[in-house]
Design a protein around this nucleic acid. Sequence first.
DNA 1: CGGGTACTTGACAATGGTCAAGTGTGGTGG
DNA 2: CCACCACACTTGACCATTGTCAAGTACCCG
Lengths: 228, 228
Amino acid sequence: MDLTEHIAAIPLFEGLPDPQIEELTDIVVDQTFKRGQSIFSDGDPATGFYVVVNGKVKIYKSSPDGKEQILHIFGAGEAFGEVPMFAGGHFPANADTLEQTRLFFFPRAGFVDLIKQEPMLAMNMLGALSRRLRMLAALVDNLSLKEVPGRLAAYILHVSEADDSPDVVELAISKGQLASLLGTIPETLSRILAKMSSQGIMTVDGKKVSIIDRRKLAELAESGKLPT
Amino acid sequence: MDLTEHIAAIPLFEGLPDPQIEELTDIVVDQTFKRGQSIFSDGDPATGFYVVVNGKVKIYKSSPDGKEQILHIFGAGEAFGEVPMFAGGHFPANADTLEQTRLFFFPRAGFVDLIKQEPMLAMNMLGALSRRLRMLAALVDNLSLKEVPGRLAAYILHVSEADDSPDVVELAISKGQLASLLGTIPETLSRILAKMSSQGIMTVDGKKVSIIDRRKLAELAESGKLPT
DNA sequence: CGGGTACTTGACAATGGTCAAGTGTGGTGG
DNA sequence: CCACCACACTTGACCATTGTCAAGTACCCG
């Protein structure tokens, strides 16, 4: 699979005529990062945006004392770092790889012109940003209106549903990262997993979570509380 | 000031050629809401989006037991409810007026076509969504990584800076709404305002907040803690 | 077979939410 | 013009959730 095919396969570029795909192929920068490397940091000036070819990237905010809140985790085919192209000019958060990751970097120069010429590209971009807004709104909802057990329940259900609702789901990320995504710390997550297991809601074995009582899980996700 | 002028003055439509402005004038629906009315609810199917002519609108999520988290507050000239036009099809949150408010409603039909024809409109829309993402990312950062005093400090500074940094700022919203915006409740906000006053950081008189020690406020906003 | 990282568990402290009871204050109607 | 009511805000006592600090265990990678 060569560069052009890779680029044509990116959802963001779906429906783009071939000449434009070629144009993108000319400007793309192919980069590979090792696990745990920083791609950019909050406040860095942005000179373009990225698409994940393979691997995983976390977008996160961090506080002076080292705590992190993950905003998104992006996998193959997903774009990130577009916001500064349309507002600001500097990245609004940090990006690190979670594993070895291959990225396509598209320099800003010229890309904006391409959008202006290609309504399809603009629409795809609008769709991508809109979905992202939806996700962030859901995150705020969770952080602010649910307690940790509720957030965890919602997450498990979300993963299960995204995978056609099997009762056994595999966590794609480490528990430490999951804690950061849920806005808590590993200790708390660990305790809550233990409590949910002991209450017969699910079983946990490493990264494998088996849902036993989906109804109780759903209740919990609706801001219900875990009985003591 | 007639409809066309109003529409031409909306930032989202900046740079649009006159014929398109006329087109918008033909499809716009002019609506007026009283204070405290619901414009749409989380999950409602969306048939278009809105622009605030005057007044104030809060966009918020709410939990089954009635708690609310405000995501945004929009004033004159700002658009909201565009997300479902590009992703989903239903609103991702609730919208209520905070005071008597006049809105322009733009039906979805035709609007998407207009975007495809007018790169300028697409760019404006991308800018609007990008700024919104930035704001939400900042909100998540605050909710997750700062305690309430820090969030309040950041809010006060933000308002002050948006107004060219005067030392006396007027709260645009009620303290109850501010509590919801900061992800807390009126009781807690009240206590923290009292504490900050007694520590000589600022004084509060109704909706008027006078910043006394801007340095301490800035420290606090950087995730510092309020000394007991 | 190390050695470090990830995870778990325990005891403790504290932020902030709940419940309850005031204290204004502005708007309305008598 | 004043009384009254609703509503926004404040204050106090209490307690639940969750973060902190400190060990200890399991596990993966080299």
